[in-house]
Design a protein around this nucleic acid. Sequence first.
DNA 1: GCTGTATGCAGAT
DNA 2: TCTGCCTACAGCG
Length: 270
Amino acid sequence: MPEGHILHRLASEINATVGGVAVSSSSPQGRFTAASGLNNLTVGHAWARGKHLFVPFNEIDHQVHVHLGLYGAFTLTAANDVPVTGQVRWRVESPGHTIDLRGPSRCELIEPSAIDAIVARLGPDALDPDAQPELAWQRINRSSQPIAHLLMEQHIISGVGNVYRAEVLFRQKIDPFLPGSALSKSDFEAVWADLVELMAYGKLHGRIDTVRPEHEPEAMGREPRDDDHGGEVYVYRRQHQPCLVCENPVKNKVLAARNLFWCQECQTAD
DNA sequence: GCTGTATGCAGAT
DNA sequence: TCTGCCTACAGCG
């Protein structure tokens, strides 16, 4: 379930479980050929930027770079000798913990200059305390592309994916088709502040919840819903269902090669 | 068993 | 703008 908050959460979990510990490393599926070279190395401080995860080791200057892509996932188990099931690209094991990685689009051991290059092409990350949102604003302000497209661009803002783009635009009542150049500075600032809040919550809880208390089903006199992506949301994958605020049907259209969801009535271009 | 789908992105066209 | 790729699982016959 990889938007940026998941990678930051994973970095924390890796640090809490195998940080500072000598681990065994393998690639049961065989595609991460550098894995065996990491045997008996000590895990350094794992960190994330945008949707990229980096795992350093104390004895070497290279780091493992992981990008989960669409369906990559880590599984952490508080046990050893866990049977290998499915296609495990990378297994890291410490006494008491097993971490399996499946389905990543990238899992590679890379040198410092390659790490720098990846970080350099990423826009500010709402989960980075030192992020400079002004850089994102400058790029958005210069673009005629729809804001819903720009929010998916990792070199503009890193870490935002298809759920957060739809939800933050709904929460800020912004028309997803509004060109970046037509977005007001105050609306941009509201979007950024909301991303900081939503993604910090996502990192803490491991799920995306965006519905404000006053719009919760109980508060609105409705039956609670059971969404299948692990969180409570306003519009993501709720096409044709009634908007939680105005009850008009949620709309759905492919934008920037991904399914966009929005409420035409709530998100006006004023 | 097969098909479609998914919170992503690079590289080709 | 399109295609390919990484994997698991639901839904269907």
